[in-house]
């Protein structure tokens, strides 16, 4: 599973992307956030307030209960501010 981070989420985690292999009990975006949070203090800081985090699964916006699978590309970032 490829996980990408953008904007201040990337800065707090300390990397732009990583390859992870969570256990099968991690089934959705919310579960992945909880699992990633335990990986490092940086991850914990980035995900401290999940309400400020948005996610995409395979480059489509995805809510907390969107399923995640081994070959997915999953991204975490703050609410968007383009335009």
């Amino acid at each position: 599973m490829r996980v990408l981070y953008f904007a201040w989420v990337r800065q707090r985690v300390g990397m732009a992307e990583e390859e992870v292999a969570p256990p099968e009990t991690v089934r959705d975006v919310a579960g992945l956030i909880a699992w990633l949070s335990a990986r490092s203090p940086g991850h914990a800081s980035a995900f401290a307030n999940p309400r400020t985090i948005r996610a995409a699964v395979n480059q489509d916006f995805a809510g907390p209960d969107h399923p995640v699978a081994a070959n997915d590309e999953i991204a975490f970032f703050p609410p968007v501010t383009g335009g």
Binding site: F6, A7, W8, A56, F61, A75, F77, P78, P79, V80, T81, G82, G83
Partner: peptide
Amino acid sequence: LIDWLKTGAPFWKREEWADGTARWVEAK
């Protein structure tokens, strides 16, 4: 299109200030 671009496309802005500080723009 411009209204949707502001809320539906994955861009993020960071402001850099003359005093050397920087901050991420928050969604409005």
